[in-house]
């Protein structure tokens, strides 16, 4: 099941003597953190932020409906490592075929027949499409591309994803000396050459 609240940032070290602090933002882009309005700490306190520089924010605590700014360095030091959350319901609805990572992580992975595979522990995206890392109980984790073919069904509300683990072809380096220089101008100029031993 998706988490009831989402971690969006952490207050870091104080900056100067006027109550400013560095804030580590986990939003995309990082400056979007202030757009979420009131952020909640784990102990129930509420805060709002206003960016005053790159990664530096002025912090205001909301106490009984009144805004109390963090005015000096001592007060800012008390907030170091304070984690800031929002309720999951305040995240905007994603576009079609888009899913929040917070919703995907922790889902149970099952195969198309319904047998348990494991649990989604991470979502990777290094510029070549997202992939899900699925931890299996008694085997090494498996990475599957986050495509309709490999993940035909995503059901965050139901707490599961259906994963059709693709077949894997192992390309052995049959002849390390054989390399191909393919021309960018067309296949007719392709040539195979061998490196000197």
């Amino acid at each position: 099941m998706p988490a009831s609240r989402v971690l969006l940032g952490v207050i870091g070290r104080p900056h100067g003597v006027r109550g400013l602090a560095h804030v580590l933002s986990y939003t995309d882009p990082p400056t979007a953190l202030t757009g979420y309005g009131v952020l909640e700490a784990e102990d129930g306190r509420a805060f709002t932020l206003r960016w005053c520089g790159e990664g530096v924010a002025a912090i205001t605590e909301i106490r009984a409906g009144a805004a109390v700014p963090v005015a000096d360095r001592t007060a800012a030091e008390r907030l170091v490592n304070l984690r800031l959350f929002i309720p999951r319901a305040r995240l905007a609805a994603p576009a079609a075929e888009e899913y929040y990572l917070a919703d995907l992580i922790g889902l149970a992975a099952v195969d198309p027949a319904g047998a348990a595979l494991g649990e989604v522990v991470a979502v990777h995206d290094y510029g070549a499409g997202a992939s899900l890392e699925i931890a299996r109980p008694h085997a090494a984790p498996v990475l599957v591309p986050f495509t309709r073919a490999a993940v035909p069904e995503v059901d965050p509300a139901g707490g599961r994803v259906v994963v059709a683990v693709p077949d894997e072809i192992v390309v052995a380096d049959e002849d390390p000396a054989a390399v191909r220089c393919a021309s960018a101008h067309g296949p007719d100029r392709d040539a195979t050459r061998s490196q000197a031993p």
């Binding site: 939003t27 995309d28 929040y100």
Partner: peptide, 20 residues
């Protein structure tokens, strides 16, 4: 270029993944 060799760990925050 698309398979980094260093481990990067980060928080998900409000980041989204698009199914291809």
């Amino acid at each position: 270029e698309f398979s980094p060799t260093r481990t990067f760990t980060g928080h998900s925050g409000d980041k989204k993944a698009k199914r291809g």
